[in-house]
Amino acid sequence: MRLLKEKAGRTVMFILTVLPTLLLVLMFFGLFRKSRAILALKSFGGLLFSSGWHPLRGEFGLFPFLIGTLWVTAVALVIAVPISLLMAVYLSEYAPRGFRDFAKPLIDLLSGIPSVIFGVWGVLVIVPLVGRIAPLFGRYSSGYSVLAGGIVLAVMIFPTIIHVALEVFSAIPFPLREASLSLGATRWETTRHVVLRKGSQGIIAACVLGLSRALGETMAVLMVVGNVPAAPKSVFDAGYPLPALIANNYGEILSVPLYDSALMLAALVLFIVVQTFNILARWFLVRAERRAE
């Protein structure tokens, strides 16, 4: 009887472990099957790199959306990575323990806030702000732009980056820092030459995780980015990232032929890119752990 329980328990746990992986595979094939309809008529490369998006005329170029995704993500990373790394370094290497214990949960709390709230904040604060600063750079902007999307996204991903970076730094043994300090190095020298170097793999992982979150993030960005299906030429132009495309149009797809298939293809592309980055991040984290011993 006990043996039976043991066996049953093990089977259940095994299934529960395999399920998420299986789900991923199923999703991949589901998306793939749905996008077959359009891939049968047009080449994958052609769809990816042509820029006309006119569903009624049967043109489904994904290029503007790819570029939109890229721009928003790049802006978000340029803003979020330096700030969050500096914050993580401060919290782990400089801040007194009391402050660290106080700040860490607060930062983690940020990542629990629903996307829509960031979107509203973006519409109310960031969009007007961008509209006002654009003329300083000699451009007109409604404010609904890649820059606004990037800023909102940066705020959303920085808890992820800080969180992972803090884990990485805390895995570095304190005696290693002492070794550097005991040679007469300052804290900053120790941080730069020892902590950051020892943690480099993990820091990359933190950024890649942030990146993959950025790529897939929908709601907040959709609300502030403008959603014009043309490749943006500057950060003040409106953009239209892939997730926004899918979310905005999924309701109306039935009437137009191939529309649903095109959106599924967009989803497939997004899926592959995000999963690739997730795997990459895992890989860097594993390497970082091995390096930290």
């Binding site: 070794a179 005991s182 190095a185 030459h193």
Partner: peptide, 26 residues
Amino acid sequence: IRKKMGLLSQKPQVLPMSIYDNIAYG
């Protein structure tokens, strides 16, 4: 003050760099 003293810890703590750079670090 710390420069006046060398420290050996319980577990050897090599810095994440080459042998040469470990010595040249200080």
